[in-house]
């Protein structure tokens, strides 16, 4: 099969590895990490624009390398080519290999934040997307110095504790080892970050099999949603995560 893969760059190494092993011919287009932070309407507009540029009749399907991602794929519409989307809240389902494993791990580790190669080496925190991010627009990613300048020392301290201190929201970093790492540099970096924040650290083995099934065309409907031409993506907020919203 000839497939077009449009994906968040968070999966860069994993998808390149999976595509290299696939019998399918897959053209990959990576989009910058951080679309999930610019608001669902803006994220959808960007994804739809890329999907709409796909040459008609050239591919059997468009693979969308995204989860529900803060509702950023809600409303995405398939044009002439069907779109295949993993049933996932976010990328962690694909890294761990199933949404059940993600669900179990997430529920037994409240306050966990995950790291993979993509989470560490991808995304430009000073680029255009950061300026557009909701966090930036409502002031959540201000530096302490910026707050002092704008609101004075006492208020800045209060705002910093209330808005910018992630320590309350997270308590563990988990590194997911996907088998695409050149050495232990990414794990080491995660371990160091956890230590510096005073959070727990754990390394777990990832499972690239769902990513492989994605690019190989093994699209069981319990694992992937196929959006037929003219149909549109809707969230269910149930176990199946996404469904079709008929036009």
């Amino acid at each position: 099969m000839q497939l077009k893969l449009i994906s968040c760059e968070i999966f860069y190494r994993e998808l390149c590895a999976a595509v290299s092993r696939s019998r399918n011919t897959v053209d990959i287009e990576f989009l910058p990490k951080g679309l999930h932070d610019i608001g669902c309407a803006s994220m959808l507009a960007r994804l739809q624009e890329v999907v709409d540029r796909v040459e008609e009749g050239k591919y059997e399907a468009v693979l969308l390398g995204y989860g529900l991602c803060n509702n950023g794929i809600v409303g995405l519409t398939a044009r002439a080519t069907p779109i295949v989307i993993p049933r996932a809240h976010d990328c962690i389902t694909l890294f761990l290999g199933s949404r059940q494993r993600y669900f179990d791990y997430f529920n037994s580790h409240p306050g966990v934040f995950f790291k993979t190669t993509g989470w560490i080496e991808r995304g430009d925190s000073r680029g255009e997307l950061r300026q557009l991010s909701i966090q930036r627009r409502i002031g959540l990613d201000s530096s302490f110095e910026e707050l002092v300048e704008k609101y004075g020392e006492d208020n800045a301290r209060y705002l910093w504790d209330e808005m910018c201190d992630l320590g309350r929201n997270y308590r563990q970093l988990t590194f997911i080892e996907m088998g695409v790492e050149p050495d232990d540099r990414f794990e080491r970096q995660t371990r160091e970050e956890a230590a510096s924040r005073g959070w727990d650290f754990e390394r777990v083995k990832g499972d690239p099999s769902m990513i492989q099934r994605f690019v190989d065309g093994c699209w069981d409907e319990r694992e992937f949603l196929i959006v037929r031409p003219g149909a549109r993506v809707a969230p269910t907020y149930e176990d199946d995560i996404i469904t079709l919203d008929q036009l």
Partner: peptide
């Protein structure tokens, strides 16, 4: 007003 102003007024 944005979130920081809301927080400060509420405080």
């Amino acid at each position: 007003y944005f979130v920081p102003e809301l927080l400060l007024s509420a405080r």
